[in-house]
């Protein structure tokens, strides 16, 4: 039943309830927006550049596997101190490759695939070279980035 429009008390009460609900709706709208605007834990997508851990702990003639996006990357410090980085996934059957200090090159344990320190497949089943990334030191940290 439509209420009598002349009842000012009832109208005021209705407006008050309406306003309260509207405040609730506004809260439901602005809460996500404010949270969205606050910076996320990782401030940018790990697409092009990723931090690969402290530089000091990567000794010459060793390698380190780090996540790059959703795939592993292999950072290698050469004997002369130079840094290089490669995609960590073997081009044969997608096992994760590793650095072999004794051979001084990259090796895949799954089917004995070998890559040299430019990422070229030099022996075994891998059909093509590993992608290589840029690697450099930024302060105390190693940073690797995709070549664009």
């Amino acid at each position: 039943m439509p209420a009598t429009p002349t009842n000012p008390d009832r109208r005021r009460w209705l407006d008050w309830v309406l306003g309260s609900w509207f405040a609730g709706v506004c809260g439901a709208v602005f809460f996500p927006v404010v949270r969205y605007l606050s910076p996320p834990e990782i401030s940018e997508p790990p697409t092009l550049t990723v931090k690969a851990g402290p530089a000091a702990t990567l000794a010459p003639n060793t390698g380190r596997l780090v996540p790059f996006g959703q795939k592993p990357a292999l950072v290698v410090r050469l004997k002369n101190g130079e840094l290089r980085a490669f995609a960590g996934t073997c081009t044969h059957l997608a096992c994760t490759v590793q650095y072999r200090p004794d051979l001084e090159h990259i090796w895949c344990a799954c089917h004995n695939g070998h890559y040299d320190l430019t990422g070229r497949n030099i022996s075994g089943p891998p059909p093509k070279p590993l992608d290589s990334y840029e690697a450099h030191e930024q302060g105390d940290e190693i940073v690797i980035s995709r070549r664009t």
Partner: peptide, 8 residues
């Protein structure tokens, strides 16, 4: 990663 990013 962004809070409520999926929603927006």
């Amino acid at each position: 990663r962004v809070p409520f990013g999926w929603l927006i």
